[in-house]
Design a protein around this nucleic acid. Sequence first.
DNA 1: GACCAGATTGTCT
DNA 2: GACAATCTGGTCA
Length: 189
Amino acid sequence: MCVLPYEFYNRDTRIVGRELLGKLLVNESTAGIIVETESYMGENDPASHAARKKTPRNSVMFGSSGVSYVYFIYGNHYCFNVVAHKDNIAGAVLIRAVEPSLNTGLMIKRRKINDIKNLTNGPGKLTQALGINKKHNGITLLKGGLYIKDTGLKVKNTAKSSRIGIKEGTELLYRYYIKGNPFVSGKKS
DNA sequence: GACCAGATTGTCT
DNA sequence: GACAATCTGGTCA
């Protein structure tokens, strides 16, 4: 049980995306097990924010690995990413879904719903449940507060598929999830 | 249950 | 001014 070090994030974005499955995402008093991720590369990935050029908004993706990248979208929702790439490349892993693990009651209060399975099975949902917002953009995940740790949990069945909610790059299978887990977004397994 | 359109704000051109 | 890595609620079957 230890906080993931810089070396974990400073690897190929796709590897980090796959290996984040089963890890524990912690923020303040709430936490959830990551069950679904998507990897977004740099200039070679047309669906990535970093595909075109560096702007104030996406500059975090060009920064150092192990940093949180939070952005606001569609007027209502935040999405939480972890910057992860080898040196001198842009890239980040989008956390799409987690399984509620710690302080589920607080998540229910924040989401204002009673359905546990509907609590964190989507990017906009999990940020609301865990209390992640714009103030978390650009902060490090290596020091505590907001961080990801290894619980020693071994993931058995992982699967990959096309990413969701994008118009380009859909042929790239950069979405990773735990097969059969009820908290994965979308429909059933 | 499946499909469709609206909501609503920050950022870029 | 247009658009976006989404969610919710409505309508129709």
